[in-house]
Design a binder for these strands. Structure first.
Length: 576
RNA sequence: GCGCCUGUAGCUCAGCUGGAUAGAGCAGCGGUCUUCUAAACCGCAGGUCAGAGGUUCGAGUCCUCUCAGGCGCGCCA
């Protein structure tokens, strides 16, 4: 049950009844406690359109508003705000509802969509590096959230497995032999190949021929190519597993998968009378965009030599996704620099009829990861940071910290905590940021374990679990949230209760905006509300109904935190 | 030249699509552990929202211009 939607509907219909047409109620959580739990801001705008006094109009709306079952008090404030103070008993009732609900009040969407989420998409010619991290983490979180809402989510790992660089890799593979050893470090292998390519003209020629042979379906080249991809994909899978990212081999559909379809894409653009020729290349002119010379942009789909480009592949992918996969919404989680490219591809796809107007094509952009010097994140020596190394460091840093903070536990425990905390901190630091802006990557900040970080949430969860362990040790029945009723007796309980009920509207907002940081912001408020409750309201030392109610609140909080972290792809721990 | 993004407290960032007196976390200062995990909690201080105009009941948010930084714009992805 989306609390905000409930209020929105009630008040909107009151506004309508008051003569305000279909003006939205514009319900939002109140800015300050004295303004109640929620405020409706729509009366001012509606009154303006009607050319009446906003306060008077708000009065009329209140007359039409039947909300006494939900709100204990509704008042008009300022120029025409409606402030809503929710009824404690009603809050408690709704808490009972979500406690009994596996999905914690998040209702399945009335009309589920088929959503394709295109994310991660590393270049298989190289090892995964920090440049792939944000797409992988953000995309995975969005896929989980959309799935949780009941949508059919199809993950697509659009890996780069078909570029010209494969000619050079295959040639080098032939030269150095096919031992697994030579491919142990893909980054080294790539660098060696590149070096040969740049320095040896014969090698370069052979490499270029290899590309042609590969694309022509030459048996030997195909075999080597397949072998190379297997190794590279296995490496990716290792990273995904370690990261707790849900991508599998089944989600991989690389550029090569669209190869046979590319001539048809060009032919269909021609049929749609979009295709033009310029300097031997074929492409689409777009009046909507301009090039460097201030002329209309020309998007090339077929090179003068006959090869295809990424715009072509992306167009083929759109058609596959809307056609074969039946997607009605497609998300592209890539860095913001590709914004213009996608705007152009989407436009062409729509003009050509590859995607009908109802289908939502969305670029989900994100900014760069910067070092603390404000420049793109690199190793100290200026090299690319491998994802594997980064993850190893995350665990090492976390383990050092855990051993220091909580001494005297066994090694297995430290290893488990280090993984959950280290990887969690890394992912959370990324997700908590508004994805559109660049963000400064700093170990000490994300592992400082203070503020809006994964460990703070994990700690809140662990504290709750500890309460239940204590209760069990004492042999007392620890009533859970599904059985015991919740009563509100203290302000801290009330704050926590309202936060718990806002889980559903938060999830809806994340799905609508594709902004995971909204969920992180919510978690921080929820965990904060719990911490305050924890300090102010003794649980095990209280008695009777208060005790069982507080235990129920604890249990419900734990479940919401766990679910929210799970949707972000972050583990929880029974003990830290 | 055209276009996109960014500019908010000393630092790192929010700001729910136009709402009330702009919020957090670090860092700083001051409190709270014989009491369910102090990796915590409570409080104080900190602001010309880059700048200038404009739109209106109301602007960090929308429009115009300026400044600063980043990125992109025909055969790489």
């Amino acid at each position: 049950m989306n609390l905000r939607d409930v209020l929105e509907q009630r008040i909107s219909s009151a506004i309508q009844a008051a003569g305000g047409e279909d003006a939205p109620a514009m319900v939002a959580p109140s800015a300050k406690p004295q303004f109640g739990d929620y405020q409706a801001n729509g009366c001012m705008a509606a009154a303006k359109r009607m050319e009446t006094n906003p306060r008077q109009f708000a009065e009329t709306v209140l007359d039409k508003l039947d909300i006494s079952d939900i709100a204990q008090k509704v008042e008009i404030a300022g120029p025409g705000f409606i402030n809503i103070f929710l009824r404690d008993e009603w809050l408690c009732g709704r808490l009972g509802d979500i406690a009994a609900d596996e999905k914690l009040g998040v209702a399945a969407k009335a009309q589920p969509q088929t959503v394709v989420v295109d994310y991660s998409s590393p270049n298989l010619a190289k090892e995964m590096h920090v440049g792939h991290l944000r797409s992988t983490i953000i995309g995975d979180a969005l896929a989980r959230v959309l799935e949780f809402l009941g949508n059919k989510v199809i993950r697509q790992n659009h890996v780069g497995d078909w570029g010209t660089q494969f000619g050079m890799l295959l040639t080098h593979l032939d030269e150095v032999g096919q031992s697994g050893e030579s491919l142990a470090d893909l980054e080294d292998f790539y660098r060696d190949s590149k070096k040969r390519f740049d320095e040896d003209e014969d090698f370069a020629d052979t490499a270029r021929q290899a590309v042609v042979k590969l694309q022509a379906g030459d048996e030997h080249c195909r075999e080597n190519w397949r072998r190379f991809l297997d190794i590279s994909l296995a490496h990716c899978q290792e990273v995904y597993d370690l990261l707790g990212v849900q991508l599998t081999a089944a989600d991989v559909r690389g550029e090569s998968a669209y190869n046979d379809d590319l001539p048809r894409v060009v032919a269909d653009l021609d049929t749609a009378t979009l295709l033009a020729e310029s300097q031997g290349a074929r492409g689409v002119f777009l009046d909507e965009f301009k090039n460097k010379d201030d002329e209309r942009a020309f998007i090339i789909v077929e090179k003068s030599g006959g090869g295809y480009l990424y715009a072509t592949t992306d167009l083929a992918a759109i058609r596959y996704r809307t056609g074969e996969l039946g997607a009605t919404r497609i998300l592209y989680v890539t860095d913001s620099r590709q914004g213009q490219h996608f705007a152009q591809v989407f436009l062409i796809a729509q003009k050509a009829g590859f995607a009908s107007p109802e289908i939502s094509l969305e670029h989900v952009p994100f900014g760069m990861m910067l070092g603390d010097d404000g420049k793109p994140f690199k190793t100290r020596t200026g090299g690319t940071v491998k994802l594997m190394d980064l993850l190893a460091q995350a665990r090492a840093e976390a383990e050092e910290l855990v051993r220091r903070k909580t001494p005297g536990l066994d090694d297995d425990h430290y290893a488990a905590v280090a993984k959950a905390v280290g990887i969690g901190a890394l992912k959370y630091a990324d997700l908590a940021q508004n994805r559109t802006s660049d963000y400064v990557f700093a170990w000490d900040k994300m592992l400082s374990l203070e503020g809006n970080t994964a460990p703070y949430m994990q700690y809140a969860y662990a504290r709750i679990r500890s309460i239940f362990r204590k209760a069990a040790e004492a042999g007392e029945p620890a009533a859970d949230s599904q059985e015991a009723g919740i009563v509100i007796t203290a302000p801290a309980e009330r704050n926590l209760a309202v936060k718990l009920l806002q889980f559903a509207e938060t999830i809806d907002a994340v799905a609508a905006t594709t902004m995971p940081n909204i969920l992180c912001g919510y978690l921080f408020e929820l965990a904060g509300a719990f911490m305050s409750f924890y300090e102010a309201c003794p649980v095990l030392k209280s008695h009777g109904q208060t005790r069982s109610s507080r235990l129920a609140l604890c249990d419900l909080t734990a479940r919401v935190i766990q679910k929210a972290l799970e949707l972000l792809g972050i583990e929880t721990l029974e003990q830290m």
